[in-house]
Design a protein around this nucleic acid. Structure first.
Lengths: 135, 135
DNA sequence: CTTAATTTATACCTATTTGGTATAGTTTTA
DNA sequence: TAAAACTATACCAAATAGGTATAAATTAAG
């Protein structure tokens, strides 16, 4: 019931860039030092964020990264799912192949874990990075 | 953001035993067949449940397992945490060593993921196995 | 137009966790 | 006393997590 360390780092990276604002960039090395994330790992995460449209990369001398969207349009769920994949709680909810529903047409575990998933998803979606900055 | 398959199985085992009621036992083999869980893995999970006080084991011929508590006193959180360990969302919330709080005395990621953890915990705690049976 | 600072792409590596199995032993009831 | 159960411990393979390495492409500045 955890997000990966990589997703955790990604949240911190996006928060850092949110502080800077969309118009300012920072290079991966400085960012990694500020956030205490291994530099190469930071690069890898930034690549995913860039491919996912969350950040924007500038190459060459004085290059770096900046947010590609307004902080208020980015929330925890978007970042976590980009890195970790969809939030799913258990495989029964995610993949019906593994679910009793197939056999018995009823699976109360499925049902309640679906509720848990929805609750979690809604909460993560409700927190955007503008909110986080203001805390 | 998932529970393990083992915890998922454990929920189904406890639900099965809840259906039986505290006064009736079932042996591991039958249980594993009903729930489509590998038999040896079922035994392993039942051992953990028994050590955790959730089930009770009867040895010897006509032995088996029964619930050791009323279904309404058992909830999703109790079973999941027994198998998977504490719900923690990320290591920052769980272990302050890894948290910016140490450095900066403020970590908004920590704060909000703490909220997520609490929400999740409360929800899992709010669903007991009597409720599940009645669904 | 060349050099240095930067990102990109791909691939690799190691440790841990997960999911499950095996073996040998203990208890109980008929 | 034999068979049907549970117990304890330890082992194993595959997947995932977390991170590293190498080589190439791009860009700004001098």
């Amino acid at each position: 019931m955890k997000i990966t360390q990589e997703a955790d780092y990604a949240l911190r990276i996006v928060l850092n860039l949110s502080k800077l604002g969309m118009d300012n960039r920072i290079d991966a090395k400085s960012l990694s030092e500020e956030e205490r994330i291994p530099t190469r790992f930071t690069l890898k995460i930034l690549r995913k964020l860039t491919q996912g449209g969350i950040t924007r990369a500038y190459r060459g001398v004085h290059g770096g990264y900046a947010l590609n969207q307004n902080p208020q349009d980015l929330n925890l769920k978007i970042v976590i799912e980009l890195i970790d994949g969809p939030i799913c709680v258990n495989r029964c909810v995610y993949d019906k192949e593994f679910c009793n529903l197939k056999r018995t047409n009823h699976c109360s575990i499925h049902h309640v874990l679906g509720e848990v998933k929805d609750l979690l998803t809604d909460k993560l979606e409700s927190v955007n990075f503008k909110d986080l900055l203001e805390k």
